[in-house]
Computed example of a mutant assay.
Amino acid sequence: MLTDAHHRIIDYVRLSVTDRCNLRCTYCMPENMRFVKSSALLTDAEIITLLETLASAGISKVRITGGEPFLRPGLIPLLAKINAISGIRQIAITTNGVLTHHHIPDLKALGITHVNLSLDTLQPARFQQITRRDQFAAVMQTLDNLLAHQMQVKINVVVMDQVNTDELVHFAALTREQPVSVRFIEEMPFNGQGHAFSGINWNYEAILDTLREKYTLHKLPDAPHSTALNYSIPGHAGNIGVIPAYSRTFCGTCNRLRISATGSVKTCLYGPDVLNVKDLMRSGEPLLPAIQQALHHRAANGFEAEQLHTSAPESMSVIGG
């Protein structure tokens, strides 16, 4: 098993398969984003080698992210190969939903049922303001199709001051009839704008206080490595979660490794890149010793990791969702 410097077992990897995206969400990516050449990305063969190696060391869950993962050519065949790796018990996907609805039957056929859908507003005009693209209808079509195919859907809502905080109760209302989980995420400093991030007004406590003005919230048990504080609303088919992504209250149980589309490894979202698995594979060097060594120097939490990050924060799309 992979373990870190603080005796935490690492059994979950978030793997970006592309840095490209068809949206330009203001909290995630600058409008003038420059994408890397395809030759700089991990190839399908390298991804399989990487995941086979990680699975041999106890990684059992893989989340596929981007950019927007469905912009990667041949994603479904790649997912089929990942699905065949011994030891990988769950594959999940985070998507913006613009292209996803065409692929839902293929995902279901592969047994991939866990999908996180990024959706920060229920208003078409506001969607265009946030994403700088007019794709609201496509995303809603994906949401409807995911639910129709009985997928396990989590809607990820980044809560932004003076942008979408008036919609929190409307998002919670989505859980009344549908078995969907709506997760409100604190805004983070990874917008790729290159300027200082001064903190947030809408932390997880403020989000919960606002929801409690409308709803009675019953605390649900959280999974051992959950990043979300989970709640049910009486009479609702679904549930809600609040993720203290900036407050970083969950670091003590973190079980994940994060790998970008170009092979850069982060042992903490807030920390610097610690090695590059693509470079290791292309030079013929062994992967596991280098990964384990990096984990042995892992920071205790996101605040400590942030102190190690001397450059300006990257775009979340570059980090990998």
Rank of each mutant, 00 (worst) to 15 (best):
D4Y: 00
H7N: 14
I10G: 06
Y12C: 02
V13R: 00
V13P: 04
R14V: 06
S16D: 03
S16K: 01
N22A: 10
R24T: 03
T26R: 13
T26A: 11
P30V: 14
E31Y: 09
M33T: 11
M33E: 13
R34H: 15
A40I: 04
A45L: 03
A45Q: 12
E46Q: 04
E46W: 01
I48D: 05
L51I: 12
S56R: 12
F70L: 11
R72F: 00
P73I: 00
N83A: 11
L99C: 12
N116D: 07
A125N: 15
Q128P: 00
Q129N: 15
T131I: 09
R132E: 03
R132T: 01
A138Q: 14
M140R: 11
M140P: 07
T142Y: 04
L143G: 02
L147V: 03
L147T: 09
I155W: 02
V159S: 10
F171C: 15
P179D: 09
S181D: 00
S181K: 02
I185C: 10
F190I: 10
Q193E: 13
H195N: 10
H195F: 08
I200K: 13
W202E: 07
Y204K: 00
D209W: 02
T210Q: 12
T210M: 08
E213T: 04
K214E: 08
L217F: 03
H218G: 10
K219F: 06
A223K: 12
A223C: 06
S226K: 11
L229V: 04
Y231I: 00
P234L: 04
G238V: 12
V242P: 02
I243N: 08
Y246T: 12
S247M: 09
S247N: 05
G252M: 06
S264P: 00
V265L: 11
Y270C: 15
D273L: 07
N276P: 05
V277F: 03
K278D: 03
L287C: 05
A290I: 06
H297Y: 04
R298G: 05
A299K: 01
N301L: 02
Q307L: 11
Q307K: 15
L308I: 05
P313A: 07
P313T: 05
S315H: 14
S317I: 12
I319W: 05
